[in-house]
Design a protein around this nucleic acid. Sequence first.
DNA 1: TATTATAGTTTATATTATAAACTATTTTAT
DNA 2: ATAAAATAGTTTATAATATAAACTATAATA
Lengths: 93, 93
Amino acid sequence: MFKDLDPLLHSQLRLAVVSLLISVDSAEFTWLREKTNSTAGNLSVQLDKLSEAGYVSIEKTFRGKRPLTTCKITRKGVKAFEDYVNSLKDYIK
Amino acid sequence: MFKDLDPLLHSQLRLAVVSLLISVDSAEFTWLREKTNSTAGNLSVQLDKLSEAGYVSIEKTFRGKRPLTTCKITRKGVKAFEDYVNSLKDYIK
DNA sequence: TATTATAGTTTATATTATAAACTATTTTAT
DNA sequence: ATAAAATAGTTTATAATATAAACTATAATA
């Protein structure tokens, strides 16, 4: 009846991040921070988790002289999100 | 953009419990345990939290000689669930 | 040349979720 | 009659989480 909810996505900030990434080609760290209204620390930690799970790929480069972190959702991430949303339907009728 | 998700409901087991309670008049502890596939300990803890939040009312009586815990969702609980589902829509598009 | 701003990461802490251990009683088997 | 198992939970211990605070490093500005 109630399918398990992927604990990696069942987290407000990580879910928001994935939700944003799914609708763009790629996103910068600072853009994600603004859109999600999160602190940089929290976002950094949660992006690492999504990255370690293979849900998001992260590229660290430089824009001019300052660091630039660019994030993209992976195919695995898209699948996980779809599954999550699907499972959630059991819970919210 | 992303509304905060009520942390009391953003929990797999508590959400399942509230989701079940919303569609019945009242429910017994053991029925909830079976439906949610949870351990009694976990369910007991989460029901307490829902009860303390005023989302669920809990009545402890006896059926014959053994304890019987009966749960009902409150108006406040229904409202919180509706708000939660609504907020969630931002996240799942 | 201090001071503030940018772009993050690391660490510490408080909260959670969960299972394991426990209590209390009742039913069943020997 | 009494030992063993089942019922209906609660309490406690622990591992995982989310989060903010503190920190690093560099760049721009006053």
